[in-house]
Design a protein around this nucleic acid. Structure first.
Lengths: 354, 354
DNA sequence: GTTCTGGATGTTAGCGATAACCTAAAGCGC
DNA sequence: GCGCTTTAGGTTATCGCTAACATCCAGAAC
């Protein structure tokens, strides 16, 4: 008899089938949802499965179904903390589905570079692509994907657009909640540092801020707003401009944590105590938020979970191909959370002298 | 005729074989190293491959060879920046080999938690495990892996131990180089903030520091050394202790960037200008290093590349199983790089008054 | 010339799972 | 009771690739 190539004693459907007294096909049916299987049979199979500790072989499965095995992830250096969370979630979902994640870095802001990076995917036969911010809003990337006929799902694209797929939090509402937190503490002079002007999320966060200010009966026009780019450096510059003015704002709301961390740095250098002299808050809850002193009050986005959801949505979309080309798009909004740490407090009493 | 399940027109070995006028097996041989194939045949096949844009199907391959399809990665929240780089590298190598990466978080420092997390792998049939710091030095983890018979490769385990597999930089030499940089600038009073006492890398970096100090003819005993834990918070405490003393050190060498960033924060709060009044340097070159002002002079570890190498080493080791159980261990040292940014300068002239 | 040797290639038989098809019994309306 | 649909399950044929074995043939060895 020929030498068998049988691997290191992995349990297969056949083994389970034998143990449960059914055919391999029935086991397969049980594993994948169990339609058209009698309850008693199903139980017998399930019992056999965990008695033998059966784990389906993902390679065999994806070979058999001939489905997506590679999904792309185009990233452009958002904060490293963001990326690692994102990868963790995406990887978990990809593995569950038995498909590989193909990473493609896209440094460079030019349209050419972005298009070039996107084109890599077409050559690498990925069946779909996940787009974390900020690339989800890049025109060249989307054009190129459309040209190659590769479906994509965006994550944290600020606002829904018809025909696109997107997973995000409600930036507007989250920013409003954060603003209310500051107002509730007694702040009446809150400065806002905006995010990158090309990202819809920046505008949404700002809108949420304005909305909450108005809702509290305050005048939005009285609040100082500085431009920013979501980078540490831009936060530095914005805060310097703000703190040069008198009276100083009693609170600064930066549209992300990187800029908030920068604000903390500048405030410290000017001898201000946080939060006694000034409150500073961020947005995103990346690791950086707890790597400054004091730790930042911020808004947590469930990044890993969002990535997971996005992958699942992409796979669902790929599977549906053929059923109907339902290109109507889909949006999923996941819950956020206000995380109050140590960088916020009521405004100083002698606000007049500040 | 039965409906075929043939997927979306993917090119297969058969197609290539037909185009090149050879058998599928020959194509397979060419793709995998091409032993025992005549040069002329090889060229014909290669030509056909890239004319048809053939990409081997990884699922089919790993099903056929019955090889490792899952390799584990046990992580314990090192800095997020470290993790994302690590994942990028590991993922690239895993995909090339057609195998999946199974992530397992291991929060918690207790032996029980670590053992428990490790045990997850045994149940998930991963064939090998990659261990980034600090878990690569965890006794419970290693015991548990050994018990389950799962081979592992460590990354950045500070020093080589017989019988283990490891990829790292030369922490000793890197720390010495950094110290020489400070000495060359004119510093004679350099404080050192150590890393976590349980990690060998901490000791190595400190040894490198001491060695360079001695080599320059200075007295190591005169240099202040503070304990630390590689965390931002511990860096904060250590720096506060250091800067309370007079005379202040003219330079602080923190054993990683997180602690160096903390040192920058404390120095700023005390009104010191960096690098004019004091130089501060870190180690690792994670993203945080450029997210403080001024950007940190530090040592770059090629993290992604190290992870890639580790995965490759692990796979080689798994394949070799059966040939010989060569348990002699292996170590690979990759080059590091001193990155001089803006946080270092010559010591202040009036050092006497500091 | 014959046998041996080893390199270059083809052939066959899986790897583990599932799609598509088939079968047998049960349910159902009339 | 008869055909018809539905349900529960088995059979068979792949998916794409490669290990193991078989074959062929040129040159070496005798």
């Amino acid at each position: 008899m020929r030498a068998t190539r049988r691997g290191q004693g992995g349990v297969t459907v056949q083994d389970v089938a034998r143990a449960a007294g059914v055919s391999a096909m029935t086991v397969s049916r049980v594993v994948n949802g169990g339609h058209n299987v009698r309850e008693s049979t199903r139980l017998a199979v399930v019992e056999a499965i965990d008695r033998l500790q059966y784990k389906p072989n993902p390679a065999a499965r994806s070979l058999a179904v001939g489905e997506a095995t590679q999904i792309g992830l185009l990233y452009a250096n958002p904060s490293a903390a963001y990326l690692s969370q994102f990868l963790i979630g995406a990887l978990a979902a990809a593995r569950r589905a038995g498909c590989h994640l193909v990473l493609e870095p896209c440094e460079g802001e030019s349209a050419d570079e972005q298009a070039e990076a996107t084109r890599q995917f077409a050559g690498a036969d990925v069946q779909g692509v996940i787009l974390p911010p900020p690339l989800c809003e890049s025109e060249p990337v989307r054009t190129e994907l459309a040209a190659a006929g590769i479906p994509s799902v965006a994550v944290a694209m600020g606002r829904h657009e018809a025909g696109t797929f997107n997973v995000r939090i409600d930036d507007f509402e989250a920013a409003a909640a954060m603003t209310r937190h500051l107002i509730d503490l007694g702040h009446r002079d809150i400065a806002f540092i905006r995010g990158h002007p090309n990202q819809v999320a920046s505008a949404e966060r700002h809108r949420g801020f304005v909305h909450a200010v108005e809702a509290a009966g305050l005048d939005p026009a009285a609040m100082r707003v500085e431009p920013g780019y979501f980078t540490y450096r831009s936060g530095l510059a914005a805060t310097e401009r703000l703190l040069r003015q008198r009276p100083r704002p009693t609170a600064i709301f930066a549209a992300n944590d990187d800029m908030a961390a920068a604000a903390v740095g500048v405030a410290h250098r000017q001898g201000l105590h946080i939060p006694r002299d000034i409150s500073i808050v961020g947005f995103d809850d990346v690791a950086l938020a707890t790597n400054v002193w004091p730790e930042l009050t911020t808004v947590r986005q469930p990044i890993a979970q969002m990535a997971e959801t996005a992958v699942a949505m992409l796979l669902a979309r790929l599977r549906k191909r053929g059923g109907g080309d339902a290109a109507e798009g889909e949006e999923l909004i996941v819950p956020h959370e206000l995380v109050v740490r140590e960088s916020t407090a009521p405004p100083p009493r002698d606000a007049a002298h500040r």
